[in-house]
Design a protein around this nucleic acid. Sequence first.
DNA 1: GATGTATTTTGCTATTTTGCCAAATAAGCA
DNA 2: TGCTTATTTGGCAAAATAGCAAAATACATC
Lengths: 106, 106
Amino acid sequence: MDVQRYKKLEARAGILKAMAHPTRLFILEELAERKHNVGELTEKIGADISTISKHLNVLKSEGIIHDERMGTNIYYHLSCPCVLNFYQCVEGVIKSKADEQASLLK
Amino acid sequence: MDVQRYKKLEARAGILKAMAHPTRLFILEELAERKHNVGELTEKIGADISTISKHLNVLKSEGIIHDERMGTNIYYHLSCPCVLNFYQCVEGVIKSKADEQASLLK
DNA sequence: GATGTATTTTGCTATTTTGCCAAATAAGCA
DNA sequence: TGCTTATTTGGCAAAATAGCAAAATACATC
């Protein structure tokens, strides 16, 4: 495979990979509603705060979310609402998967 | 987090995860053009055939691709062309990332 | 500067992923 | 049946990921 093409695919895969975790998808859903800080997310999720902090860093590193400091608090928000478009895409795949399994049962 | 919600997120994350690899994205792009067998994909990618076979299995397990046996050959194809919609989504995120970095330089 | 609150980083372990190689399986044909 | 081609599976090592707990950092206030 051509190096140029591989680099492009790697960049795309990076974004998908950053989103590919249930906790991180939860974070994105919550951020789509309103900005949150680590503490708020931790409370809603129920894991160690350091774990959530790392998940936030994964999303931030890929440019999917943004942080904004307000005093001692750091608020995170979506870099772009387009992230929500992914849901329609995923839903499409899930639906076609369901349809297929249904047709196997016929 | 509520168990129901977590399960849903897990299903979505599974699909994203299956796609989150440059080689697997390459495979999806090629399959969008036409069906391929493992040998053809291996040649285009340049890796061990067993490696590609495993990547195909990852995509198949999530129901993203399909296989169809034709004699000794097994041809793979996309379960649903909607997979291509992901590209627009990813591109949107990449663009917002680029815009942001550009604005930092101003 | 000292203290308290919010957050990240480090250290550690367990698990998963990736990729090659060799061995096993599947189907077609002499 | 035996041989060939196409493909998958098992084994293994290296690398990446995830999660908790403890230590470190950042900012605000006293």
